[in-house]
Design a protein around this nucleic acid. Structure first.
Lengths: 236, 236
DNA sequence: CACTTTAACTTGTATATACAATCTCATCTT
DNA sequence: AAGATGAGATTGTATATACAAGTTAAAGTG
C-alpha cells in the first residue's frame, strides 16, 4: 500500500495542475488566493499556501506579494535548463532572423523516429521542416516530428513565426525534455540547404518533449558552427 | 535599501551553508534537528524547518523521516542536469575504460582561458590533460584549467582515477556550472591523439564550474562521435 | 542469546493566529 | 485633471501547538 490518504496540500496541487493542463486557467491568469483556497478546500491558510508555494518552485505559478498568484508563462519555467531560442540568439547578436517552412505534412515514420516518438513503425506522424536564416545565410535546419494524437491541430500553423514551446505548450503542457547532442557531418541535401560542404562539422541536437500524456515531439536541429549554451544550478 | 532585517530562516540557512562550505560538516554527516535549531536560534520549529526544507530543495541536504537531516553527497545534487561521466557511459555499453594523464602542471594562461577562468592574462593556472580510452581506442580528450587560488592542492592527484566532481567538490563545493557545446574540427595534435583525420567532426564541450568563491575550473572536452545526453525537467 | 516491545527522537502534515510588506484601486484633496 | 491618501486584498514571515509516521536504540521477555 502506497498512500491510504493523500495529503491535503497534494490534493490542492493536483486541482490546480489539472486546471492549468486542461487549459481552463491560461497563462498570466490569476489563480485563487490563499484565502480563497482556504475556504474552498476547508483547510488552513498554511496548507493552501504550501500548495501554491510548491507549484511556484516547480515553475507552474509565479507569485507577487500584494497582487496575487498567476499561471506562469512557459518561458518562466525554463530556468533549469535553457537552450536559447535561435531567433533570440540571432537578434542578440544584432543580426536579422527569418525562417522558411520547407515542409508541413503527415508522414509515415521510419524506425528510428518511431522509437524516439514511442510510436509503431508505419504509424503516421506530423512532420515539419523549417530553415532558419541569419542575415540571409542559412544557419540551422529544424526538423520536427510531432505525435498526432497529442497535437491534432499541428498542421494548421505557420511554424516560421511560432517557436516550439509556443505551439507545444498550448496543446499539451510539457513536463519534461531531453536533449541529445552530437557532432556530425550532414547529409548531402542538408549540406545544400545550409550552403556548406560535406566536411563542415555540424552540431545535431535531438530534443524530445513529454507531456503527462506521453511523448509529444522529436525535434532534430542541425547547425554548423553554432554554440549552445546550457546553464544549470548543478553539474556532471 | 534592500534588506533592513534579514528573515530568520535565511540566517539559519546561511549558518548551515557556511558549515558545509567550510568543510566543518562533511558529506553524510548529520546536521542539527529541527528541535536543536529551534533552541539554538530561539525560533519556532516551523522557522527552523523552513531553513532545512529550502536547503533540501536546493540539494545541499537530504532528509529522512524518523532518522534526521544529513549533508547531501555531491551526486545527489546533480538531478537537475546530468552530463554523464564518460567512464560510467562506457561501462554501461559493456566496454572497458581507462585513461592516461598526458600533462599535470602549472602554466601561464592564454587570453581566452584567462577570461573564462576570471583570471588576468599571464596568471598561473593548473592544467591537466587526460585522454580517455574505450576498449583501447582513444575517444575523448579532457583538458582542465583550474584556479590555483581555489584548488591549491590540484597538482597532487591522479586525475585518471578521480572524476571532476570528486576533486572539485572536495576542495570547494560547487554551486553552479555552465556548458557550451560546439561542433568543431580538432587541431592536428588532438587529431593525432584521438587517431582521427582532420575532417572528423568533434563535439567540444566547455564546462565552467563555480563555487561561492568564484570560478573554479574550465574543462574542455573534445570527442568525435560521442553523444551527450541532457535531461531536465523543462525545456528550451 | 534472540526476539519483541516500548520509549524517545525525528521528520511530515495540519491548524489557528498575528503582524509585516507590498500592490491595487477607489476616494479625497488640491 | 492630477496627485495624494487610505482602505482592502494578497503574499511574506513568524509563532505555538497538535498529532501522525518513520527510525533507532534501549529495555524487557521468552
Amino acid at each position: 500500500m502506497t498512500q491510504l490518504k493523500p495529503a491535503k496540500y497534494t490534493i490542492i496541487k493536483q486541482y490546480i495542475c489539472e486546471k492549468i493542463e486542461s487549459g481552463q486557467w491560461l497563462e498570466h491568469s490569476k489563480v485563487p488566493s490563499e484565502n480563497e483556497l482556504t475556504e474552498q478546500f476547508s483547510v488552513s491558510r498554511m496548507t493552501a499556501r504550501r500548495a501554491l508555494q510548491e507549484l511556484t518552485e516547480q515553475g507552474l505559478l509565479v507569485r507577487s506579494q500584494g497582487s496575487g498568484t498567476f499561471v506562469a508563462t512557459f518561458k518562466s519555467q525554463s530556468s533549469l535548463l535553457e537552450i536559447r531560442n535561435i531567433a533570440d540568439e540571432i537578434q542578440d547578436r544584432g543580426h536579422q532572423h527569418h525562417a522558411t517552412q520547407l515542409a508541413l505534412q503527415a508522414i509515415d515514420v521510419n524506425e528510428e523516429v518511431a522509437i524516439l516518438l514511442a510510436l509503431k513503425a508505419g504509424d503516421k506522424a506530423y512532420f515539419s521542416s523549417v530553415l532558419h536564416f541569419e542575415n540571409d545565410a542559412a544557419i540551422q535546419l529544424e526538423q520536427r516530428f510531432v505525435n498526432p494524437k497529442l497535437v491534432p491541430n499541428y498542421l494548421a500553423q505557420d511554424y516560421t513565426k511560432i517557436t516550439p514551446h509556443e505551439y507545444l505548450s498550448s496543446e499539451a503542457p510539457l513536463t519534461e525534455a531531453t536533449h541529445e547532442v552530437e557532432a556530425i557531418l550532414a547529409s548531402a541535401d542538408i549540406c545544400e540547404l545550409l550552403s556548406i560542404t560535406n566536411t563542415t562539422p555540424c552540431l545535431q541536437v535531438k530534443r524530445r518533449t513529454w507531456s503527462s500524456q506521453g511523448v509529444v515531439s522529436l525535434a532534430i536541429l542541425t547547425a554548423p558552427g553554432n554554440k549552445y549554451r546550457l546553464g544549470s544550478h548543478l553539474v556532471f
